[in-house]
């Protein structure tokens, strides 16, 4: 082992050992746990697939897992669609020395307490909330709307709000990297502004869009607070179910199984997405 290798290995050792001990080992433990079963107050350590079978067949588990993925998917699509024009505006239409100010403005709300932001959406969407008060006050509706809180819609809206900066930043970074002379070249070669956007800008921004999709999709699948606050019974997601198994239901092995299933689903979807874009974009 030469000197360089030894120095690098010595440096990486503390953070690596930390991650091994507090991440790799615990994840392994969860995996082992998921093959055990809860027998009233004790854990039966006989390895079995029973929990996985239950997760796959019990309608409650299937519904909630499916719903989590659908809600996250909807959040991801909505967030990225809403975020792209903002990133585009800041990158292409804001003076260079003002860009950091705009990004600053975009990120500020994100640094306010997450719990309170979610709670405030409840205030916005509630029966006597801001939106209903405003709409009845203006005489647009007679009775307060009820379909905007305690359901999946509320979860999608709230999560889209919470993850907006996460989608804007990677897209902005990708747009910033585009050499502006490429756009001029495209115009010079006879493309219009619109076709230039679709044939040059968008393909070059694709890595940023993919990053945004992953950054929004992965954590939202496992979000606990938003469904618990604004989701009601129709908006319950997998994290609430996992928490319930570790808490009130006292069935940690089943909770572990659900964690593994959730993580596996997210990983498969994320990898499929990355693979599909590689395939689409050729060998880039």
């Amino acid at each position: 082992m030469d000197q360089e290798t030894r120095r690098g290995a010595t440096l990486i050792a503390p953070p690596l050992l930390y991650a091994l001990a507090l991440l790799a080992v615990p994840l392994g433990a969860v995996l082992v746990f998921s093959f055990w079963t809860q027998d009233y107050l004790t854990v039966d350590r006989t390895p079995t697939l029973a929990n996985y079978v239950k997760a796959a067949t019990d309608p409650i588990y299937r519904t909630i897992l499916g719903r989590s993925l659908v809600i996250s998917g909807a959040v991801t699509v909505l967030t990225v669609l809403l975020a792209f024009p903002v990133a585009y505006y800041v990158s292409f239409h804001v003076r260079p020395d003002r860009k950091s100010l705009w990004l600053f403005l975009i990120t500020i709300p994100f640094w306010t307490s997450y719990l309170l932001r979610i709670f405030l959406w409840k205030v916005m969407l509630g029966y006597n909330g801001v939106i209903n008060s405003a709409l009845t006050g203006l005489g647009i509706i007679d009775e307060p709307l009820t379909f905007i809180l305690y359901n999946a819609n509320a979860v999608v809206l709230t999560l889209s709000h919470a993850f907006a900066p996460f989608a804007i930043l990677p897209i902005f970074v990708a747009l910033e990297k585009i050499d502006r002379s490429l756009l001029e070249a495209s115009r010079d070669l006879g493309e219009t502004g619109v076709t230039t956007f679709f044939r040059v800008t968008l393909p070059l921004a694709l890595p940023g869009v993919i990053a945004a999709i992953l950054i929004v999709f992965i954590p939202t699948v496992g979000d606990y607070v938003t469904p618990a606050q604004v989701g009601g019974s129709e908006g319950t997601m997998i994290a609430n179910l996992i928490q319930a198994h570790f808490g009130g239901l006292n069935d940690a092995p089943m909770g572990a199984t659900l964690s593994i299933v959730a993580m596996a689903s997210v990983t498969v979807i994320a990898l499929a997405l990355v693979w599909a874009t590689r395939k689409l974009g050729g060998a880039r």
């Binding site: 091994l20 507090l22 790799a24 615990p26 433990a29 928490q243 909770g255 964690s259 994320a270």
Partner: peptide, 24 residues
């Protein structure tokens, strides 16, 4: 591995550490 928590739902980190800390 060191960067993994960035793309892991926080509930997974919470659950895995809970399992190790309490059960193991």
């Amino acid at each position: 591995l060191i960067m993994l928590p960035l793309v892991l739902p926080e509930i997974i980190v919470a659950v895995s550490l809970l399992v190790v800390a309490i059960r193991i």
